[in-house]
């Protein structure tokens, strides 16, 4: 819905992502804020921002796979682990350049996703979810037992990310790298949705039989969705590994996969902005409940065992997720859309 008085007279204007001067102004403001964040942000919140960026990249991948194409995947953490370990092994053991390691991480994760996407040709829904859970456990089992390459259960130390000889040693520079890759992922996802491939994904999600009748090759597009979705998971894994400086199988648990599914649901399935909202919401909620709310409750109620007040944090986390699913199942992206509509109509109500 365009603002009152704005009309599109050309195809280019109709397809433009930023169509009005207000859009451009807000976009530039967002760029300015995001670009200058490290200058006025503490180290802790800069680390949270980097974590949000990495989570967003992985969530974009899962959103393409589950939100656009309707292929439920509860093994996303496994594919993130593939990317992390690929990058770690190539850079630490074989001295690959970081950028090549990053690309290989995405390609390897995409390839593994492609392999584990084959069940989607025969099963769907709950049964496909079980197959992706199997992927999670198989991947972590291989990582944990392939001692000679991955270090097994003991993990690996990962070197600094390095671009053209410049080592990214601190969060200040890591932030810009992560945000750049996140922007690329979001831009890719946004444009994918508007292409023939994106429309095929949506058609498969809505009714795969009808899509097949219309001439969409289910085999090709489902596997492509797995490849693309897991590619971005691998990229996120690589960035996370180089940021943290070490990898071990315990960091990519099944609960992480569940978290990502919850994240894209809260953000809004099948929307471009949904993964961003979901990542910001989940990571900030985690910080607020664990680091601020629980200690505040402990200080406010000193007579209660602090384990009791600390447990309120995760309880609140679960309640919020349930409330979202009940009251706003289309996620924060839908709320944002409603806000934009009401803003454009204001002061009129319809």
């Amino acid at each position: 819905m365009l603002p009152c008085g704005v009309h599109n007279y050309t195809y280019a204007k109709d397809m433009a992502i930023l169509r009005t001067k207000t859009h451009w102004a807000l976009f530039l403001l967002l760029l300015a804020l995001a670009g200058t964040l490290p200058l006025y942000c503490s180290g802790t919140w800069l680390a949270v921002a980097i974590l949000i960026g990495i989570t967003t990249i992985a969530a974009v991948g899962l959103n393409i796979l589950t939100g656009y194409c309707g292929q439920l995947s509860i093994g996303h953490a496994g594919f993130i682990a593939v990317g992390a370990y690929t990058s770690a092994v190539l850079t630490a053991t074989y001295n690959f350049p970081f950028l090549l390691g990053l690309l290989c991480a995405g390609l390897m994760a995409g390839f593994i996703g492609f392999i584990f996407g084959f069940p989607s040709l025969r099963v769907k829904g709950f049964y496909l979810a079980i197959a992706t859970i199997a992927a999670q456990f198989i991947i972590l089992w291989v990582i944990g037992h392939w001692d000679k390459v991955t270090g097994g259960q003991l993990g690996l130390t990962v070197p600094f990310a390095s671009i053209a000889g410049f080592q990214i040693r601190d969060d200040f520079h890591m932030y810009y790298l992560v945000m750049f890759v996140a922007a690329l992922a979001i831009f890719f996802s946004m444009n994918l949705a508007r292409t023939r491939v994106g429309r095929a994904f949506v058609a498969i999600r809505d009714n795969d039989l009808a899509a097949e009748v219309m001439g969409i090759n289910l085999w090709f597009y489902k596997l492509l969705a797995f490849f693309i979705g897991c590619f971005w998971a691998g990229v996120a894994g690589s960035l996370g590994a180089h940021w943290m400086g070490s990898v071990s199988p315990e960091g990519y648990s099944f609960m992480e996969s569940i978290l990502y599914v919850g994240l894209i649901i809260i953000g809004g399935l099948g929307t471009t902005i949904g993964p961003i909202f979901g990542a910001i919401f989940i990571r900030l909620l985690d910080q607020l409940t664990g680091i601020y709310l629980s200690p505040a409750l402990t200080a406010a109620f000193p007579n209660l065992p602090s384990g009791f007040t600390t447990g309120i944090g995760p309880m609140l986390f679960g309640i919020i997720i349930i409330l979202f699913l009940v009251l706003e199942p289309r996620g924060l992206a839908h709320r944002w859309t409603l806000f934009k509509f009401s803003y454009r109509l204001w002061p009129f109500s319809y």
Binding site: G43, T44, D286, G290, I291, S294, P295, P314
Partner: peptide, 16 residues
Amino acid sequence: LDSGYDSARMVTLIKR
């Protein structure tokens, strides 16, 4: 501070 046995939150704790 509670890490929740979560690696991602532990990273934010060490940064803090």
